[in-house]
Amino acid sequence: MFVAGLVVNGCINVVITTIEKRFGLRSSQTGLVASGYDIASFACLVPVTYFGGRINASKPRWIGWGVILMGLGSLTFALPHFLVGPYRASSAVSNVCLNNSTNRECSSDADEENLSWNVWLFFLAQLLHGAGASPLFTLGVTYIDENVSKKMSSVYLGVYYTMAIIGPAVGYVISGQLLLIYTDFLLVDPLS
């Protein structure tokens, strides 16, 4: 729960505006990306709870597959950074249209590469995150409750839900610090 909260509710929420700028996405597209987690969680919640909660089903196996899906979602979320070329920050001068007495031309549209197709990779990643997290919220709680003593059940569930709360907070702090690092730090000197 800590890692799920850190990645999905912490890191992604912090970097979503940076991704919007980096890949030239509209706010409606980043809204779609952000909602992908909730869409998949909603769609998977009932089937995962039903099939994972059956008598002969192995709850740890379902939770493990969920964690693997979340890992694949995180790798998919990082994939667009490696599929596109190095980041070139646009300056204010490149966004100015030059007025001439005979014609008008804008230089910013010709130079920029259209990277908005990456929204579908981000959306797929969020779908994988949501599908992977659904066993944690349903089967994880019942698994804890079934396998610890009644006296200690509340303590374990308290720790479980505390980690779900602390994860996003730590994700916000870590992601805020990572935003201080230039996008292509190995390829480009940000001071030049």
Rank of each mutant, 00 (worst) to 15 (best):
I12N: 09
G31V: 01
G85N: 09
C11D: 09
T30M: 02
A131H: 06
T49I: 03
V93E: 09
I55Q: 07
G71R: 03
G132S: 02
Y37K: 11
C106V: 04
G52A: 00
Q29Y: 00
N99L: 11
R26P: 05
Q177P: 02
A125W: 04
A92D: 01
R54I: 09
L187C: 15
R104G: 11
D111K: 00
S108D: 14
L69P: 03
R88V: 00
G130F: 02
S192V: 12
G24M: 14
R104T: 07
E112F: 03
R104A: 06
S35D: 01
I174A: 03
N13K: 06
V96D: 13
T17I: 02
R88P: 13
L178S: 11
L180S: 13
V119E: 04
S116G: 01
Y172C: 02
F137M: 15
L79S: 14
G132Y: 03
S90D: 01
K151Q: 15
Y160T: 08
S58L: 00
C97Q: 13
T76F: 10
N118A: 15
G64A: 09
L75T: 00
M1F: 00
Y156F: 08
C44F: 12
G130M: 00
P80H: 12
H81P: 13
L79P: 05
V141N: 07
N56Y: 12
G167T: 09
A133T: 03
R22P: 03
T162W: 14
S192A: 07
E113K: 15
N95E: 10
V46Q: 14
T30S: 09
V14S: 13
R61K: 10
G85V: 08
V141M: 03
N99K: 04
L127Q: 06
D111A: 06
G167M: 12
K21T: 13
N114T: 15
N114H: 01
F122A: 03
L179T: 14
M1C: 07
G10K: 01
D111W: 01
V188W: 05
S91W: 10
